[in-house]
C-alpha cells in the first residue's frame, strides 16, 4: 500500500469526505471496468461501484495493508457481483467451458489476428465470464498471478489453469476469424 493510500484511508476512517472523494477519483475506474468486464452492464457496474465505495467508507480502518488497494477493491466488487447474481437467482457458478487445447504452434497468422483489437473484442465477448475475468485482470489491469489468486480466492495453480483455458479459447476464436469467419462476423 502506498503512503498516499494509507493517508487517504486513515482520513476516510475518520470521516473525511474530501479524502473519500480523492480515493473515489483514484480507483473508481479500476472497479467499474472490472465489473464491466464481467457483466457488460453499465447500470449494474455503477451500482456495484457504489456498493464497493460505501464498503470502503464503512471499513477503511479494517483494510489489511498486506494487499494492494486495487486487489482489495476488486475483491469486494467480485463479492458484491456474486451477491447480486445470487439475489437475482441467476446462475453464478463459474463456467466449466474449458477450451480444447490447441497444440499447434503459434502461427504468424494468429499473431496478426491477435493484433486486431476488433477481433479480440469480439472473441472476449464470446468466451466464458471466468475466462474474460482472468484476461481482464492479467492483461488490462496487469495484475500478478498472486494478486489474481487473492481476488478470485483460488490457489495460484488455478489462476494459471484458468489463464491457460482463456488463452486457448481466444486462440480458437481468433483462428476461426483468421480462417475466414471474420468476413461473416463483421459483414
Amino acid at each position: 500500500m502506498s503512503e498516499n493510500d494509507a493517508i487517504l484511508l486513515k482520513a476516510i476512517a475518520a470521516g473525511d469526505e474530501k479524502a473519500m472523494q480523492r480515493f473515489f477519483n483514484l480507483y473508481a475506474n479500476n472497479v467499474y471496468r472490472y465489473v464491466l468486464s464481467r457483466c457488460a452492464d453499465n447500470t449494474l457496474a455503477s451500482d456495484i461501484l457504489n456498493l464497493v465505495m460505501l464498503e470502503v467508507w464503512r471499513q477503511a480502518d479494517a483494510f489489511q495493508a498486506r494487499s494492494k488497494v486495487t486487489t482489495w477493491l476488486i475483491g469486494i466488487a467480485r463479492h458484491k457481483l456474486i451477491d447480486h447474481y445470487r439475489k437475482e437467482k441467476r446462475h453464478v457458478h463459474d463456467e466449466l467451458n474449458e477450451a480444447i487445447p490447441d497444440n499447434a504452434p503459434v502461427s504468424e497468422q494468429l499473431v496478426t489476428a491477435a493484433q486486431n483489437a476488433e477481433w479480440v473484442k469480439h472473441c472476449l465477448e464470446n468466451i466464458g465470464r471466468t475466462q474474460r475475468e482472468i484476461i481482464h485482470l492479467a492483461f488490462y489491469a496487469d495484475m500478478a498471478y498472486a494478486e489474481i489468486a487473492e481476488i478470485i480466492e483460488c490457489p495460484v495453480g488455478t489462476v494459471k489453469s484458468r489463464m491457460f483455458h482463456a488463452r486457448q479459447a481466444l486462440r480458437n476464436c481468433l483462428n476461426k476469424l483468421a480462417g475466414g469467419e471474420a468476413a461473416h462476423v463483421f459483414s
Binding site: F24, N25, Y32, A45, S46, W119, V120, F139
Partner: peptide, 25 residues
C-alpha cells in the same frame, strides 16, 4: 504480447465520475 496490446485498446467506458461521486456522497 499482441493479445495484451489489443486488450489494452478495448474501449471500456469510464465511470461518469462526478455523477457517481454525487450518488455515493
Amino acid at each position: 504480447a499482441a493479445l495484451r496490446d489489443s486488450v489494452k485498446q478495448q474501449d471500456l467506458a469510464d465511470v461518469p465520475l462526478e455523477m457517481s461521486w454525487q450518488r455515493l456522497r
